[in-house]
């Protein structure tokens, strides 16, 4: 069974809060000094899901697509090191400044260019902007059935049985192929790449596609084609003040607390 996984390289979500900075004027996140970007953790789980499908089906390929600047290559290489077969990098200055829509458009063109596989897998959301929409938009553009936020994926002949994480429990459904899946963190940990596979991945060529290679006009992608307009980007600040309620007895303290809560109009 052939699978394509779309992955994204993002600022390391483990970056300490103190090292996270945004340039409010340019409305951009500034890369943290000395902390390398990483593959979005949900996407690493998506690669894991794809590799398990390949193992269970006994044949097929797991191919990786990533849209992004030079650093996106590392997310592709990481996926290859985990065991994926081929990597494709959508790299073009025209892609810069895009949104979920332009990303999904470019990815869907690349998928059509490579041939729609049996299963298309995404992380439930990129762990930087957390929008969680690219997978669903690609499904819509390619007119494919989709199931999102999955904690389990099983092959069932040529159909796929999945378990979705929903607000009040789990929802088990079956999909035909080809289909689009998005993987949630409940799926489980991705494998650690073997050092030999890291070595082989480092030697492997990654194919690059520009907008023109995919038949896209520069006006359709990147900032030019974006449908979301950002008005401001800033780090929220939270000022927490602590007030100690004094009192000689627990009863006095409790009465003081009730008064304070009333004053704050919480009670």
């Amino acid at each position: 069974m052939d699978v394509i996984v779309c992955v994204k390289q993002i600022p390391d979500p483990e970056t300490p809060a103190a090292a996270f900075k945004v340039d409010e004027a340019a409305m951009q996140v500034l890369p943290a000094q000395g902390i390398s970007p990483v593959i979005s953790p949900f996407d690493a789980q998506a690669v894991e899901a794809a590799l398990r499908i390949k193992d269970a089906s006994g044949d097929g390929c797991v191919n990786i697509i990533s849209l992004g600047p030079d650093s996106a290559r590392d997310a592709i290489k990481h996926s290859l090191a985990m065991g994926a077969d081929e990597g494709y990098h959508l790299k073009d200055d025209a892609f810069e400044g895009g949104d979920a829509w332009t990303t999904a458009l470019a990815l869907s063109k690349a998928i059509q260019h490579l041939g729609v596989p049996d299963v298309l897998i995404f992380g439930r959301q990129a762990a930087d902007w957390d929008q969680g929409t690219v997978g669903s938009i690609v499904a819509e553009l390619l007119d494919l059935p989709s199931a999102t936020v999955l904690r389990a994926v099983e092959l069932n002949g040529d159909r796929i049985t999945v378990s979705r994480v929903v607000a009040d429990g789990f929802e088990n459904i079956e999909l035909p192929t080809p289909c689009v899946l998005t993987i949630s963190n409940e799926f489980g940990d991705p494998r650690y790449p073997q050092l030999r596979q890291i070595m082989q991945a480092a030697r492997k060529q990654v194919t690059e596609f520009t907008a023109a290679d995919l038949g896209l006009d520069p006006s359709e992608v990147g900032a030019a084609g974006a449908r979301v307009q950002m008005h401001a980007l800033y780090q929220p600040t939270s000022d927490v003040e602590v007030e100690i309620i004094e009192g000689d007895t627990p009863e006095e303290k409790a009465a003081g607390l009730v008064n304070a809560l009333r004053e704050a109009k919480i009670l």
């Binding site: 970056t15 090292a19 000395g34 902390i35 290489k77 090191a81 890291i198 070595m199 030697r203």
Partner: peptide, 23 residues
């Protein structure tokens, strides 16, 4: 943070050495 750049001075095996170390 801040020291990983120095830790990754591994000329011998190029990209492979750095990737292996990071993993």
């Amino acid at each position: 943070a801040g020291v990983s750049d120095v830790r990754e001075i591994i000329a011998g095996d190029g990209e492979t050495g750095v990737e292996i170390t990071r993993n």
